[in-house]
Design a protein around this nucleic acid. Sequence first.
DNA 1: AATGAATGAGTGTTCATTCAT
DNA 2: TATGAATGAACACTCATTCAT
Lengths: 211, 211, 211, 211
Amino acid sequence: MEKIELPGGAAREPQTTTGGSGACEGRRVRRHDPERRTRILDAALDVLVTDGAAGITHRKVAACADVPLGSVTYHFSSLAELQAKAFAWYVEQRTAEFEHLFTQVATHEDLIEILVDLVQGGPSRRHSAVLGFELHLAALRNPALRALTQQWTTDSRAVLARFTGPEIAGRLDALLEGLIMHALLATEPEPRERTRAAIVQGLAPVTGWGE
Amino acid sequence: MEKIELPGGAAREPQTTTGGSGACEGRRVRRHDPERRTRILDAALDVLVTDGAAGITHRKVAACADVPLGSVTYHFSSLAELQAKAFAWYVEQRTAEFEHLFTQVATHEDLIEILVDLVQGGPSRRHSAVLGFELHLAALRNPALRALTQQWTTDSRAVLARFTGPEIAGRLDALLEGLIMHALLATEPEPRERTRAAIVQGLAPVTGWGE
Amino acid sequence: MEKIELPGGAAREPQTTTGGSGACEGRRVRRHDPERRTRILDAALDVLVTDGAAGITHRKVAACADVPLGSVTYHFSSLAELQAKAFAWYVEQRTAEFEHLFTQVATHEDLIEILVDLVQGGPSRRHSAVLGFELHLAALRNPALRALTQQWTTDSRAVLARFTGPEIAGRLDALLEGLIMHALLATEPEPRERTRAAIVQGLAPVTGWGE
Amino acid sequence: MEKIELPGGAAREPQTTTGGSGACEGRRVRRHDPERRTRILDAALDVLVTDGAAGITHRKVAACADVPLGSVTYHFSSLAELQAKAFAWYVEQRTAEFEHLFTQVATHEDLIEILVDLVQGGPSRRHSAVLGFELHLAALRNPALRALTQQWTTDSRAVLARFTGPEIAGRLDALLEGLIMHALLATEPEPRERTRAAIVQGLAPVTGWGE
DNA sequence: AATGAATGAGTGTTCATTCAT
DNA sequence: TATGAATGAACACTCATTCAT
């Protein structure tokens, strides 16, 4: 009655961490793992997307990042700190991505297309968008996160303003935010033309009704 | 052979729901209480504003509604149901309020003023706005809530459409949502003129850039 | 291969609570159990004797009291409160016992005998004595417990003072405390005659050396 | 693409032993440090005074001794060993001090004065006294420490016996222990005269009550 | 109809200890 | 020799939920 060793499996799988809402799988033994911190942050963001701020736990993050529980609390002294650092990491990535997106804009038409894509962007962008709103909501209650949203908003508007001027940029930013939220919630996708029309209108200089 | 009292109070009543994050206070005895259900729902909304979906618990709601813990589980069979019913109650009130708001609109100028107030609305509206975003985010993950947001959006747009037509109403609705979120997060209030300009522009019919 | 039901045992023994340093055993299902609070306090005292203030945990107490873990935290809102209430319960019992002990003292000889028994008291009194010192030490750091030790000391001295006058009572009390501690720590028991001599001397009125 | 700093400090160094209950402060870099072992032992004693046997941890000791965490586990193979060695170090110091105290005793009056000082000794002696009781209690449960208390008691009595003879020394030792504990716990200091009277009486040869 | 008692699953966090360097 | 990284067991405590009354 010997114990049969399965290939790749240590005699006793430590720290079962059964859970997981399905976002992350797998588990390998791992020694010396220099990008662990970042992987934990990514895992935290995944959990935030899946379960929201209400559902994040050390254990879910650990399972998702494929690290032992102690590793999460070792690298981040509290769950609040983990969340804050994860959001910071998110904003850093997202800002870079946003910046990069607009380097390719040459014509006014390019700009419109990119903005429409931003709103209509498929499931790939859903992840990003959900995190954005999650951060907004968290920042409403946690002033420490306010600096993050502040900076993010400023940066985004600055990018837009290169094409539209500051006045329009602010308004456009708000419009995009609303459109994205509605797109996320809509049961059936908005027709691309409608989104496009809204953005085109948002880009136009201020005009009174009937003026 | 006196009883020596230690910290914790006389004869320590267990079950003392010691209250929450400061949203609700007071505690009176209360016999036969017909609006208890509603008071619980209001309490749930208060807790949602204060602590978010991450922080709502039966105990906090009970303390906030000034009812015994058992009363909450008696009226609502689970926390999820309580939350859903609370959001439904919120949408019901908010829709009525929204509807009522526009009964007084006579001129185009009235419309603009009311929309600007909606965005700039002081701390009184903060409560409402936070709940709205909380609901949006919850609905992203809970399909049962999707019907609610769906209906709410439809109703809001219908009200706006009476003044703007359906096309503009959708776009305007999104713009308002974005403006409100930004107003909530801004550390210093947006000048009223800027908000007004954004709304005026959002109300204008579609025009191409420079056309 | 049916599951054989042991009489009195539920299909699944809930809450395994493996531990226990050996002080407490057994586990029965128990519904409606009015002396549970007291049994938890007694269990807490047992754990304090066995493992000291350093070793008390909710889990050990629960196992020892034969109640589920949640029951301990339900009845006592924190471990500190449990400890405080347990010490209070200990002092209450001990004071009554002490009082009762001296109701039977008629002669001076009786008094001496009882005090010697107090110091030499076998393992039965060890429990009590260890708790006394544990309380003393805890009270050094926790001012909330100071009231308890204060009252206890006062009461004990009052009892002694009925036989010796207040001056001697204070001194005697200290002597007894020291003798008991030394008796607890001694690897081989002090001869009864020596203890007796110390107490007899402690009972004598103040006399200078060689006076 | 700036790094946005969140609460927690720059680039968050894990492993920051954030210090303890306030017993020890300061933090300097330190290379080649020959008395590190002793400083760790002193730190352990400080922690024991402040937080008791219940509160000692490697981390607190490391912070208090101003050494890295690994240094504590390097010099002492387990927490139990650290504690034992710390107590041994304490007894060694205390015995020497006790011995030295009595080298200056010439007259009977000197002896009395020194003993009264021992009991009434201000906050400076509090440290010592608390540790003494902590050791006593620890020794009750840990036989490995019993040898220490045994030796300590023997030594103390031997010193006293040089002035009083062995019989009185034992009794006196017990009396001192009790007096010291009561002095530690008393909310208001015992009048020096009373302490003096108790000691004078304890020094007197055995006399029956009224004999 | 209503509620206090009860419970066990699960949380964030601490920590002794091990290990590679 | 010394130490930072790492880990899993255990902890105090919270809470949704169940149940008897």
